[in-house]
Design a protein around this nucleic acid. Sequence first.
DNA 1: CATGGGATTGACT
DNA 2: GTCAATCCCATGC
Length: 200
Amino acid sequence: MKALAPDFYERPVLEVARALIGCMLEHDGCAGVIVETEAYHESEPACHAFIGITARTQTLFGPAGRAYVYRSYGIHALFNAVCEPAGIGAAVLIRALEPIAGLELMRRRRGRLGGRVASDYELCSGPGKLTQALGISLQHNGEDLGRGAVRLGVAPGQPAAARVIAGPRIGITHAVELPWRFCAAGSRYVSRPRPPWPPA
DNA sequence: CATGGGATTGACT
DNA sequence: GTCAATCCCATGC
């Protein structure tokens, strides 16, 4: 896999969120193609960077191309790629993957669901699910995505970018009107609710 | 120092 | 559809 160059991330976060659809995320023997993302920017209140630089958000304001990992609802680790030049707080949340490699390891990490073995579609179809499946945790916060344990890149022979559709973000209470969620059109590996939106 | 909310998930009705 | 689990951190006293 070829790592994405730092300047890939050093762009408007909406561009990066779209461009990451079809790219590959990889960690510790597991990998998947990104099929769903969301953009967050300091200018809007749903973004953690909205409140300014704190101990929690300093990664978001740091250089582009690093990981921003934080705990959600006390339970789940959510993985983001920091974007835009240093000093601007922005990131892309990776929400779902199509599993490509290490599926058995993913299944082991995800555990049994109600005594049942997880299907391929359930392995990475959510931001908390994919970090669990890949073994990504808070300790990866701040890592360089080109050189660290968690890598983001382009797979060899990666097919042409899928058609991307845009809609409202999930699970937030502020700025719900912004259509900053992006999905690979027609993919069965995206999270719920599945996108009913028209092509963008 | 105490408190409350959150970019979620899975189990249960 | 509803609800609890569980922890980091921002905020306020």
